[in-house]
Nucleic acid binder design. Structure first.
Lengths: 220, 220
DNA sequence: AGTACGTTGAACCAACCGGTTCATTTACTT
DNA sequence: AAGTAAATGAACCGGTTGGTTCAACGTACT
């Protein structure tokens, strides 16, 4: 039961069975960094958590700094994909757009409030001054992409006269702000797990305010 | 020109000239922690930045950890006071409440976007898992107090029929979310200075949406 | 003048960390 | 079965860190 975690990775195309170890290292590194912070983490502990020898880490990733970078990049792909898929309901709005907005909002919030996502933001925020390029890249494939995708969805709704927004970028930004803004305090900067009912009520309140501001005024 | 930085501190009442040194240490510590992070900062550098000998730090603050705690607590008092004073305009609303909301919003945003405040949030977010009690205290005297004070102001406006809100806590939370939420991306997690015009436009957009959602519907 | 206290610099300590080397073992390829 | 490449553990290295000790110094009170 020591290793052999391979789920069903084809392991073909890659030079050897190395991708398996690499992934294990990156996951353990992210967990360790998230728990102790970059400066307080030591490679030995990461190696232990990954059930891997220390030289293996340096062979595959060469450096504590690149180890950190790769672990962060791997983490953002997980979370961003999940957030993007949360926007799917907006593709098929019903008679009333409120339900799909609430559904999308709730799923965005769940993705935003999950442990991995919170740890990613905490770590990124912490090391941002020392890794400006990493910050730029992660913001681009993370938050920025979500905001742009949401703006696309909102633009469709505006064209269909289901929303009234002169600036969909602004609307997208504010919708996300209404969702994630309140989470900062409620989740204690990402250190407390927020129950799902609370996410639900935050999403509901966000959609409510959003619709009051952006729903078409019927008698116009 | 080596030391003698005392601006005009009376240095009377305190046991010795110690408060002066203590403050210098705390400020230098905060600057160093903000620049390098907690784990990467070393006490020697802090001592140099404070123009103080290393044993002096250990004499006065005993520990790197308590040094960090005290520096953080000192920083939050600065920033929280400034944010609280930003709410003053709401005490004297004119015929239209929009101008005072925009004024308060802009001042909140300026306080939120200043370097010290951003560094404080970054550091707090970074070390939150390791200092849960510190996080709790700072949130209480910082963000939570602002949100409560704003809720008080909004409650007055509701009573005066200038706003329509069934839940002023929620309204306060969302007003702050509309202000600070968009800043996360725009300020690159607090590492980029945001020009004042941009703060102005964010505040304007926030107030606009807020009023659309919470202004009394005249023909009701 | 004397004393008590805080500051200072320097040296010191034990522990730890990032990173490397190397001989040995494991496992896959042909 | 032979060969190759990766993984392993252990030891090792130079550098840094948090924290302490100590003798010398300055300064404020009495």
């Amino acid at each position: 039961m020591s290793r052999a975690r391979t789920p069903e990775a084809g392991s073909r195309g890659e030079p050897r069975g190395r991708t398996d170890k690499r992934q294990a290292i990156l996951e353990a590194a992210f967990r360790t960094f998230a728990r102790d912070g970059y400066g307080q983490s030591c490679v030995r502990e990461i190696a232990e958590a990954a059930e891997v020898a220390k030289p293996t880490i340096y062979n595959r990733l060469g450096d504590k700094e690149t180890l950190f970078r790769e672990a962060m990049k791997a983490a953002v792909e997980h979370t961003a994909d999940r957030s993007l898929s949360a926007l799917e309901p907006l593709r098929t709005p019903g008679d009333d757009i409120r339900p799909v907005l609430e559904e999308a909002g709730l799923r965005l919030l769940r993705s935003h409030a999950c442990q991995e996502s919170q740890a990613l933001r905490r770590l990124l925020s912490a090391e941002a001054p020392r890794f400006p390029d990493l910050l730029e890249e992660i913001q681009r494939v993370g938050a920025q992409r979500i905001q742009d995708a949401l703006a696309d969805r909102l633009a469709r709704l505006v064209l269909a006269k289901r929303l009234e927004a002169t600036d969909v970028e602004r609307a997208s930004e504010q919708f996300l702000a209404l969702l994630t803004g309140p989470m900062e305090l409620r989740s204690a900067l990402g250190t407390r797990a927020v129950p799902d009912e609370e996410l639900h009520s935050v999403a509901e309140a966000a959609v409510d305010t959003f619709l009051r501001a952006y729903a078409p005024r019927d008698p116009g």
